[in-house]
Design a protein around this nucleic acid. Structure first.
Length: 560
RNA sequence: UGGGGUAUCGCCAAGUUGGUAAGGCAACGGGUUUUGAUCCCGUCAUUCGUAGGUUCGAGUCCUGCUACCCCAGCCA
């Protein structure tokens, strides 16, 4: 992977300082800890780039650890997709894939340790009762009747919990901290709950499962994580994180630091909402090219490098922010402009017949694969009497600003000849269905000589041979939502109301140059003058299917 | 009316002992161009949420105020 000097941020500064002070024996160990309850999205990419990026530049290690403490919401499908996405992004985790569930035995021991110290008790109150007893922001909580039980009794009760002697929800292990704390997370938080659910890793071994707040700091400590990076909403949990580490014998002192999560406008990055879009079929699965999921963006044509450079350009800070989609698009354009081979594809075909081109004659034109990169070589493009051009590239009349074909005027067929439109054929409704023209055989690779005062050529348009081209399908995408912040809705409405009904347009009668025959899924091209496209996984040899990744920047006068 | 955070250009974001506002995206001019693309060149914060204060000097220190985000799951 090519190393761009990672820009500094407050977390790297903290690490630099820790290293300067000789902390952690000079080691830097981070972790990326997803819960396998959904697919990864662009926000996770930011966390992945941060955690793995730091490990890389400090010669440290980054673990991939599934935070699997809630079996009811987790599935193996998600585990597989997450591993694949991290690898696809180009990162390698240190050692084996880890699971918080690997530590369930150790966690149980440490819970027992807390109980022996009189720092945890088993509460048989109902969930509602516990909620009420916790009080609220400006009012201290009230102790449960079980709070003062002896360590011996608590131990016996916890043992019963483990042995399945309580029904689901019948008992919880709670830390004994401070019911009057202004930080709700310290008002005797729940450590374990009873849940009879088959776990994707541990099967039916357990009927009690530890909570995130208890599991996370201990997993970090067990793995020797030095810097535990998470998002801002966990900031209030940090005192408890430190409490757990301080009151158990885990022999390590990982530190938690929080950064702002990534928000993108015109989309949603909430696993719950993304799952809803999938479950209710508003999109075609987690990898629908309109989804901000890593798999969706991959299918859309985004490259790992573009996602990494995007994450880098966005930076890492503690300020809530909403990044403009334009930045993401700039990142992929920048990558593909440099690396994508060029090709011609006509999306809205209009037949152009060259009257002075001999019937049946075929010529093979040579075109560069990439005009700015000779090293990428050349390709052959067949030229015939009838070709397709784009409907938008022809007008019966237009002002001088229109740099395409106009009846009576000339334009160059890219990499080919200059043609002059001489006539049009219309259907009953008056729509132009064919354009007739003549070509100048002296204009291949050079401009017309005796110019009869015609002025400059209007421009260059792309085309595909009507008899040699390949029919294909092109899927054009627009933003999934019509408003910048889809989650912000009126009373009684949901974000679904903001879905863009025109986010997908399937165009099935397109034509692409024959050189693309057999193109493999995920191959990316720049269709000249149109944008960047990627071969979809549903594409076949018989029928090519392309997904539009992003259009070319276009900046031309509105009045042309 | 509790606690925890954040406020620097339209959007991200540097700014670390106070010394006189990086960069990217977007936008706007101009040049090159067989992609209205790319590339190149130029413009784009006398001002850092706000009101005061300290200082020769403050985005950086102090005080007050305002706005926004997070927290009362046996979710993560």
């Amino acid at each position: 992977m090519s190393e761009t000097k990672a820009p500094s941020n407050f977390i790297r500064q903290i690490i630099d300082r820790d290293l300067a002070e000789g902390k952690n024996d000079g080691q830097v160990v981070t972790r990326f800890p997803p819960e396998p309850n959904g697919y990864l999205h662009i926000g996770h990419a930011k966390s992945i780039c941060l955690n793995f990026g730091i490990a890389e530049s400090y010669q440290g290690a980054c673990h991939l650890r599934f935070d699997d403490t809630n079996p009811e919401k987790e599935e193996d499908e998600y585990i597989q997709s997450i591993k694949q996405d991290v690898e696809w992004l180009g990162f390698e985790w240190a050692g084996e894939v880890r699971f918080a569930s690997n530590y369930f035995d150790r966690l149980y021991e440490l819970a027992v340790q807390l109980i022996r110290k009189g720092l945890a008790y088993v509460d048989l109150s109902s969930a509602e009762q516990i909620r009420e007893m916790r009080g609220w922001a400006q009012q201290a909580g009230t102790p449960s009747e079980y709070r003062e039980q002896s360590p011996e009794e608590a131990l016996a009760q916890f043992e019963k919990m483990k042995n399945g002697e309580f029904p689901d929800g019948g008992a919880v292990l709670r830390a004994k901290i401070d019911l009057a704390s202004p930080n709700m997370n310290l008002r005797d938080p729940v450590l374990y709950r009873v849940r009879r659910a088959t776990h994707h890793q541990t099967g039916d071994k357990w009927v009690i499962y530890p909570m995130y707040d208890f599991t996370h700091p201990l997993s970090d400590a067990i793995e020797g994580i030095t810097h535990s990076l998470c998002t801002l909403e966990f900031e209030d949990h940090r005192p408890f994180y430190d409490w757990v580490v301080a009151n158990t014998d885990v022999g390590a002192e990982p530190r938690q630091y929080e950064f702002a999560r990534l928000n993108l406008n015109y989309t949603v990055t909430s696993k719950r909402k993304l799952k809803q879009l999938v479950d209710e079929k508003h999109v075609d699965g987690w990898d629908d090219p309109r989804m901000p999921t890593i798999s969706g963006m991959r299918r859309r044509g985004y490259t790992p490098a573009s996602l990494r450079s995007f994450c880098e350009s966005v930076g890492v800070s503690r300020a809530d922010s909403v990044v403009d989609m334009g930045m993401l698009e700039a990142a992929i354009r920048d990558d593909l402009n440099q690396h994508a081979p060029r090709a011609m594809c006509v999306i809205r075909p209009l037949k152009l017949v060259i009257d002075n081109w001999e019937e049946g004659k075929e010529e093979s034109l040579t075109a560069p694969v990439h005009p700015q990169n000779e090293a990428m070589g050349t390709r052959q493009v067949p030229m015939t009497r009838e070709v397709y051009i784009d409907q938008d590239d022809f007008r019966e009349e237009a002002n001088k600003k229109f740099k395409r074909l106009v009846l009576g005027d000339r334009v160059r067929l890219r990499y080919g000849y200059v043609v002059r439109a001489t006539d049009v054929v219309k259907d009953d409704q008056g729509n132009v269905i064919e354009v007739r023209c003549s070509y100048d055989p002296e204009t291949l690779g050079k401009n017309p000589e005796n110019d009869e005062g015609q002025g400059k050529l209007r421009g260059v348009i792309h085309w595909v041979s009507a008899s040699k081209g390949l029919p294909c399908e092109v899927r054009l995408y627009d933003r999934l939502f019509t408003v910048a912040n889809p989650a912000k809705v009126e009373e009684g409405q949901t974000f679904l109301e903001n879905i863009n009904p025109e986010s997908l347009k399937v165009v099935s009668d397109c034509w692409v140059e024959p050189g693309l025959r057999g193109a493999l899924a995920e191959t990316r091209y720049q269709f000249e003058r149109e944008g960047y496209f990627c071969v979809d996984q549903e594409s076949t040899d018989e029928r090519l299917v392309f997904n539009q990744t992003v259009g070319l920047r276009e900046s031309w006068p509105k009045d042309s």
